[in-house]
Design a binder for these strands. Structure first.
Lengths: 244, 244
DNA sequence: GACTAACTTTGACCCAGATCAATTGGGACC
DNA sequence: GGTCCCAATTGATCTGGGTCAAAGTTAGTC
């Protein structure tokens, strides 16, 4: 597989849309980051980090999808974050990982060893500031998701998840009438995200299909003929809010 | 009411245990913060900030309890954060508030106008760093709460909430056999935090009382004879983790 | 000390989603 | 083409927590 590279000073062309370090970045930072970065690949199903393990790097997802999950002793698991391309992983200043990170598709990550990254961060306040902004975004997303988990019906939960994924998959030129994407998650993973069982997920996906809110080609390929309708089903008043 | 004051250079004596700005602070920062701070009080039930409103200040809770809530158009509401003394409110770099902030008891807040606070933050990277750390704590807490909302039973949810409040109310000298505290929330507010109805909260509190996990004097005054037992009921494997 | 209003408890019943179980579908590989 | 395996669907039944309703408790307040 080819390992993409930064083009120093041309952030807009950067193949990796690091929300963490590339956004609004300047050439100097890019060059320095370029010097310490490296790539890692994970296969679908592989665990990237176990909760509690020491985590020696931070980085962002280049391609593929990974999940953050928490598990109780008896096996009940809850997904607490969904990592799509450009999302950041790791906590500068923290040693241990707080969650399991699992690749649900093949994943390429662009990594920085933690020590040099933290040094760079302390030298360039801009990166630290950007990281705070990112963390606030994640916090907003987590809290928005608390509303989904605590108060929405199964149907609304499914619609909410679909609209998050649809929104993240929409390319600028793809804002036409219908939105098309592939579900990067199994029904079980969706259930873990939504606090449901996989059977309920399956039933509600079928129901949304039957009611014409979505169309399915195969099990995973989804067409949303009318995003507004989907978002109504999700019970969202806002046009998306902070969910990642 | 008396307005407490910083003692420049003596952070450990600071009557306001700002986790945001006092922890590990130095005298200079304190003096500068002292110059721009002011106090505000809110009555129980009063709304501190409406979601979407422009928020001109940041600050921390000195005394009392406030909640962050999100509401759907049809009135379903979910609490997404609980602000206890020393907790920070506001997002430097953000204009609008993302949630309703409501005082559930009488509340005193120590505030800083946003502009000067942000200027101070950009001058003293230490404060920015501390703020990132705090935000990461909040994110961990929010994600831990997602597990509660998504996967725990009503009884476990109540036990989880009680053990959070108990932990935050425990003073260092109070690590004896039993823990005692007053619930700062109505049954309805508890229900909004837990994604339950107030009736279910009431029933489960009664059940925990009947089973000897807690004792009640009146409706709000709680005694926990055995914290370990309560935490077992909460289904927690860790000794508390990141919940605030 | 009675009156009011807000909070809380308790009971009876119901339903959305869980659980248990049986198929069905769809690649990958020989 | 066949077969193995895992993901997904679908059905039948059960149940935890919601809903609706009524009564009890507590803190003010006049």
């Amino acid at each position: 597989m080819n390992t993409p590279n930064f083009t120093a000073g041309k952030c807009s062309d950067c193949p990796i849309r690091h929300r963490a370090v590339c956004a609004r970045c300047n050439a100097d930072e890019l060059v320095e980051l370029d010097a310490i970065k490296y790539y890692r690949t994970y296969e679908a199903g592989q665990t990237v980090i176990w909760s509690g393990d020491k985590m020696g790097f931070v980085g962002s997802v280049v391609s593929g999808v990974a999940t953050l999950t928490q598990t109780m002793e008896d096996g009940r698991t809850q997904m607490v974050g969904l990592l799509l391309p450009s999302d950041f992983v790791g906590r500068p200043g923290r040693d241990g990982a707080a969650y399991n990170v699992v690749a649900t598709t093949d994943v390429v990550m662009c990594c920085f060893r933690k020590k040099p990254f933290e040094e760079l961060m302390s030298k360039t306040p801009h990166i630290a500031h950007r990281l705070l902004e990112m963390t606030l975004d994640e916090l907003d997303a987590a809290r928005e998701w608390m509303l989904v988990l605590g108060r929405k019906t199964a149907r609304e939960k499914i619609a909410s998840l679909l609209s998050i994924i649809a929104r993240r998959n929409t390319t600028p030129d793809n804002d036409s009438v219908s939105t098309v994407f592939d579900l990067p998650l199994t029904r079980e993973a969706m259930a873990d995200y939504l606090g449901l069982t996989l059977e309920t997920v399956s039933r509600q996906v079928s129901a949304l299909k039957r009611d014409g809110v979505i169309q399915l080609q195969g099990k995973r390929h989804v067409t949303v003929p009318d995003m507004t309708r989907l978002m109504e089903e999700a019970g969202d008043d806002t046009d998306g809010g902070f969910l990642i």
